[in-house]
Amino acid sequence: MLDKLITYLYDSNADLPSHADFYYEVIKEIELYFISPQIYSLLKEKGKLGNTPLFFQTRLKQKYQETIYQNLFIKNQTDHIVRKFEEEQIEVIPLKGVYFAEKYFGHIGARGTSDIDILVKRKDINKATEAVKSMNFEIEEEFIPSHFHSSFSKEIPGSAIPLTVEIHWDILKEKTANFNIQEFWDQAVSLEGFQFVKALSDYHTFYMICLHGWRHNLDSPKHFLDIIQMIDVVKDQISYRTLFKDAKRHQTYKRMVRTLSIVYSQYSMLDDIKELSSIENQYKFKGSISSILAQEKKGIKKYFTFMDYQFLSYDSIWHNLSEMRRWLLPNRFEVTSQLKETSRQHSYFYSLFILYKQRCDSVVKALWS
């Protein structure tokens, strides 16, 4: 049902069912995936909100208003951080978050966010870390080897969930591509009133959003919406020919193809907005988003999907082997994270044994489900 509603948002020829049952069911999916703000703001922007039942509008508006209050606080904190970086003369690019919501969804409350992501240059990691810590983000998460960000949090009065800042110096794991983040910096432009605070170009924002969706294996409609909304907003400002040419050079081509072809196969109206060539449109899925996501969470299909995503998304055999090695012999942090235990609770080899056992039990369970 959700795919019908999303299609209606972007296809002027699409109609919605008039019966109330549709809206009672689709609101459950919307709230399950925390996308009420996107749906509400897009319906309102496109003048289609009044075509939906009043109870549906009320539910969406309530979540939208809650998101506004949360995002206003996060924007205030983000603004403080970027001003601090400007004072310290540290180049920084805010990623996704409230700035992304404002620019591509049209309003600060149009897309929920829960943390702050910033990109810095590798040479400035220590300076950036000190700057963030000086603003009371002192709870440091354990560093993950081969990852491309570190996380710092601070307690928020009246909230059970701390606010987290992720300091990125790249957008991909090491040894998984032939990618140089400097290309993103070269085309970034300073925000108005700043010299050191910059914004990604539309092109590199889209590139990042596609890779972000891939990294999460498109496991939520919010990833589809981010990509669809960017396509609708930027349209011909982005050349797919350039995108895939760069992706081949970066060795991210399979990831880009997989992501965009899945999105396009699910939403055929996208070809009317911006056509994707048949060469890149290789993945064909039938059924709704919810049915696809449900199938991928159970049964043996889950493991075929996982194998395709985890080990066959890389352009280089060496990148495939590197990722396979990392999965077979994960580092201590990755092992304990998957087991949801503290790093010192058991020895590394014992924890690894438990992880293998869990994986085997999960496969057996899937075979019999």
Rank of each mutant, 00 (worst) to 15 (best):
E141V: 11
L54M: 01
Y350W: 12
F353P: 03
L211G: 09
E192K: 14
G50L: 02
A188R: 00
R359D: 03
F184Q: 07
I231V: 10
P37H: 03
T305Q: 04
I35G: 09
K103A: 09
S265T: 03
Q338P: 11
M230Y: 02
N178V: 09
T252K: 02
I6L: 07
F184S: 01
V234I: 15
A199E: 13
I68S: 00
K96V: 06
Q229F: 04
D15N: 15
T67Q: 09
S347Y: 01
T164I: 12
Q310H: 10
F100P: 05
L260Y: 04
A128P: 07
Y283D: 05
N126K: 15
S220L: 08
K173N: 02
Y253E: 04
M324K: 12
K46Q: 04
S190C: 14
T305A: 03
L329W: 15
S278T: 10
T113P: 08
P157H: 10
K63W: 03
K365F: 12
L328F: 15
I27S: 10
G50Y: 12
L339T: 14
Q310M: 12
Q282K: 13
F311A: 07
R258K: 14
S369K: 15
T52H: 00
L260A: 10
E174R: 14
L43E: 04
L243R: 09
T129D: 08
E102T: 04
A14E: 12
F22A: 09
G112N: 14
G287V: 12
E341M: 15
P157I: 05
E174H: 11
V189G: 02
D308F: 07
L119Y: 13
R326Q: 05
S277V: 06
S316Y: 08
S288H: 04
C210S: 14
F22S: 03
D315V: 03
F100Y: 13
T78K: 07
R258Q: 14
E142V: 15
N71V: 06
L211S: 08
M256A: 09
S150F: 07
S36G: 01
F311V: 06
V234L: 13
F137Y: 13
F349C: 07
L270I: 11
S347P: 02
S278W: 02
F56C: 05
S261R: 01
G213S: 13
Q65S: 05
I354W: 09
D272W: 10
P37F: 04
V26T: 12
S291A: 15
P37D: 00
E31I: 15
T336E: 07
I228A: 10
I289N: 03
P330A: 11
E31L: 08
F311N: 03
L260N: 01
H204T: 06
K173F: 11
F55T: 02
G213K: 01
T129V: 13
R326E: 11
R59H: 00
D3L: 04
M269H: 15
Q345Y: 11
K63T: 00
P53L: 04
S265C: 08
Y23W: 03
